[in-house]
Write a protein that binds this DNA or RNA. Structure first.
Lengths: 134, 134, 134, 134
DNA sequence: GTGGTCTAGACCACA
DNA sequence: GTGGTCTAGACCACG
């Protein structure tokens, strides 16, 4: 599993790593049940302290992306289904608002934004919506 | 100008404020050339430390949302149009990717995401472009 | 004897197994004197490492739920009756406090908690005491 | 704020501390909006490393007990109201089952358990259920 | 082998 | 002043 770090980014290391794992899962490159490399392996491969890797894994577990089991390892969690609480709806709204206002101030218009979103969506592996795998 | 702080949000105060200004501009409630209240007034109205207000203004200036002129105050900047740089394209891609992967892990699908983005776009006041986006 | 593992639970395997045995005894589905399957059988049926089964049995023996006899196997222990020690009283208090504070922070009230406890109690097979509990 | 540690307990330090804070909140000794001592103060008072205190605070924030705001401090969160998801119901059931089966194997009966729960409940400060204040 | 806890201490970011 | 990130390294617990 290849994870890359941008040492210049203001985003904390543990969060950069977590995002990349989330992306891999969203793209279907990591699937529910798949085992992640061990903390030590990840630490070595990314040249990051094991404690920082641990924080990444904690974040991912908190967000229901992985499951950690002492002695066995970390595994991609099954996609949760009971998530449609109003709190999550409001999170989605906030995320969308953030994208739109930032893109607005970068000089993009509605068409640009929609097409950027659609391009990203094309790469995502939504359940019951597979496009190429039969 | 009414700015509200959410004490429960993990987002830093200076960023909460900046986002609200950006939103006001994007919605057309603040228009290019409009003058912002003074640092002192903003600090009083929001019950926030003037230093924090300053950071907000620095952020807004860095993002070309406002222009700060010594002695005269802060003004909403004219809309950016030079979106040709690949750097901005890549920023848009990053923003879209972030929205999509987070929404994915919140349990939403492509339709949910598109409709959330469209709802937000409906409230934005995009300037009309002369050339059609064919 | 059917023991199931929840791969999503953060509870260690050996403890999941021990809890299930304790529950079977409390519900009267396993009765004092009953013989448990051998370590080998348990390991096979649950697809768990024999070492982990051993840890489960150690835990159960420590908690006086079973008795392990060299060469003959494990047996459900007779029901403990000497609850006079203050140590046990204090353990009960701790357990109750844990339930209540966690439930509080999950948003439940006293009525919810009492009714959850009562539902569970209904399934337990308490031995009849000779003296009435006045 | 007085927090005590049991160095012999198998429960991790950061969790011992978190439980005590949860108990203080449940008993109404800490109320929504109250400010917690600073990380450094807590670390000094408990003779625990600041990093460990931080983990306690992370746990408490994850469980919606406190809110952490960089630069300002940590505050007791307002009691959440939108918590009645089925997932939480099942957590309550698990907690109750744990109490009951453990208490059973300690030699207690239904009456003992109910009375232990009731004693604990008497000390809890449930909203809209205040007993002595006014 | 796996993950988890804790310490010590440097340094950064927010208000 | 507040909290937060990261490193280094010792040691513990689970399978």
């Amino acid at each position: 599993m290849l994870l890359r770090l941008d040492p210049l980014s203001p985003t904390p290391v543990f969060e950069q790593l977590a995002r990349q794992v989330k992306t891999l899962v969203a793209k279907g490159l990591l699937r529910p049940g798949d085992k992640l490399p061990s903390v030590r392996d990840l630490a070595r491969d990314t040249a990051v302290n094991p404690n920082t890797i641990l924080r990444t894994l904690e974040l991912l577990e908190r967000d229901h992306v992985i499951i950690r089991r002492q002695g066995s390892g970390c595994f991609v969690a099954p996609r949760t289904t009971d998530l449609s609480t109003p709190a999550r709806k409001s999170q989605l709204t906030t995320l969308a608002a953030h994208l739109v206002t930032e893109a607005f101030h970068l000089g993009f218009d509605a068409t640009d934004i929609r097409s950027a979103v659609n391009s990203t969506l094309d790469e995502i592996d939504f359940p019951k919506r597979k496009r190429s795998t039969s």
